[in-house]
Computed example of a mutant assay.
Amino acid sequence: MPRLARELAKFGTVGGVAYIVQLAATNLFWLVLDAAPLVGQALGVLIATVVAFLGNRFWTFSHRARTGLAREYLLFFVFNAIGLGIQLATLGVSVYVLGFDGTLARNVAGNVVGVGLGSLFRFASYKRWVFPAQPEERPAERLGGAEGAAPERQSEPY
């Protein structure tokens, strides 16, 4: 359990930094560049995703198996695209279905509720598929067989 707690703490720290980057970028696109709600959200998330990948690969899950940068990067972005879909869905429902289109409403829907739901999905996905656990040896193999004895060999038929 301590390893899970460490991973969650590191994931939260990396996520916090990426979240600040996303908030700043998204609001910049909305307020300064007058981007549409979903476009600004998507661009902010894209920028934050690069930050999150680097932090998670080289810090949060650095102790896990290395399965290749290209593979990890591709899966990371696929799962982030799904997480982005979760964020955009919450924002879209808020703006286009419920009619809550102010800056505060956009931030609550996309950057609080959407990020929260998307983060739960992302953590589980990264841990399971992007940065899988190292294959572990069985205790008997590590000790050279039962009780430290040499491993049993199967005799060949004569």
Rank of each mutant, 00 (worst) to 15 (best):
R3W: 08
A5Q: 14
K10C: 14
G12H: 09
G12R: 09
T13H: 04
V14D: 07
V14M: 08
V14H: 08
A18E: 01
Y19E: 04
L28W: 09
L28S: 15
L31G: 01
L31D: 06
A35H: 08
A35T: 05
P37A: 09
V39T: 12
L46R: 02
L46G: 14
A48W: 00
A48D: 00
T49S: 09
V50I: 12
V51F: 03
V51Y: 00
F53Y: 07
G55M: 05
G55F: 01
F58A: 15
F58D: 14
W59D: 03
S62V: 15
A65M: 11
R66A: 12
R66L: 08
G68N: 11
L69G: 11
L74I: 14
I82K: 05
L84I: 04
T90K: 06
D101S: 15
A105I: 12
N107S: 12
G114K: 10
V115I: 10
G116W: 01
G116Y: 03
L117F: 00
S119I: 06
S119R: 09
L120H: 04
L120T: 07
A124T: 13
A124M: 12
W129D: 04
V130H: 09
P132W: 09
A133S: 05
Q134N: 02
R138D: 13
P139N: 08
A140I: 13
A146P: 02
E147Q: 12
E147T: 10
R153L: 14
Q154D: 15
